[in-house]
């Protein structure tokens, strides 16, 4: 679904619109100024430096050769510092840990300066600390810059704590709303078989049924 939102995959039905215009009628360049993406697939070249990779986020705005203007350089600098990457900026991507690389990818999307940032499972392969670090950074980006940040995740408990709104897809019943509303609607109880996992509405977390 996220890939369809970002126009990376054709839709199964319905209509998606950004600023009142269907995304299928956007030219690739036009859409790239509205939506930026962080995908699950690994990047092809790990030989890029952090700075080079983040700078690629400015492609929709640069000239035919990709020359960076002062505005572009400022945006890149902002993206790097807001993702706390200043000390890593001259490192090559193959020297980074998964968590650092994921932050770089978010910085690249941030540098693209779009109103919408889509992230496909940004927390996979990360340990608990780095998962929370990424999600908290995303939350602060969303709140301080008024960007719309949409991400898919299996970390339901973290999402309940951090997100403003959630979409819950379990195949049969789909829910959309603020996390506390969904808890009130008992949306999480039916998500998993109750003989294995049960949901505790008080703490907003799952308990293993023993």
């Amino acid at each position: 679904m996220l890939r369809t939102l970002g126009n990376a995959q054709p839709d199964l039905g319905g209509c998606l619109a950004v600023k009142g215009k269907p995304i299928v009628s956007y030219a690739p360049l036009e859409l790239s100024a509205e939506i930026s993406m962080v995908l699950t697939e690994p990047i092809a070249s790990k030989n890029l430096s952090v700075l080079e990779l983040v700078a690629l986020g400015r492609q929709p705005y640069t000239n035919w050769l990709g020359t960076l203007t002062d505005t572009d350089k400022q945006k890149i600098k902002d993206a790097i510092s807001s993702l706390e990457l200043d000390e890593l900026q001259h490192k090559k991507c193959y020297e980074l840990s998964d968590g650092q690389l994921q932050r770089v990818m978010v910085a690249r999307a941030f540098a693209q300066d779009t109103s919408i940032i889509l992230l496909d499972e940004p927390t996979t392969h990360l340990d608990l600390y780095h998962k929370i670090q990424i999600l908290k950074l995303l939350r602060s980006i969303a709140h301080t810059t008024q960007k719309t940040v949409v991400f898919t995740t299996h970390e339901i408990e973290m999402a309940i704590q951090l997100c403003d709104k959630m979409v819950l897809l379990d195949g049969k019943n789909n829910y959309f709303g603020q996390p506390c509303e969904l808890i009130e609607q008992k949306a999480f109880e039916s998500l998993f078989p109750s003989d294995t996992v049960s949901f505790d509405p008080k703490t907003g977390s799952f308990r293993i049924t023993k």
Binding site: P28, L29, M37, L39, P42, I43, L48, Q59, W64
Partner: peptide, 24 residues
């Protein structure tokens, strides 16, 4: 030389290049 910019975007992979506005 005309494809230098898309070539740089392709270093990330085709889907990323597309999301950067490259006409694949």
């Amino acid at each position: 030389i005309l494809s230098i910019k898309p070539l740089n975007a392709l270093l990330l992979g085709e889907n990323y290049a597309k999301s950067l506005g490259v006409n694949l």
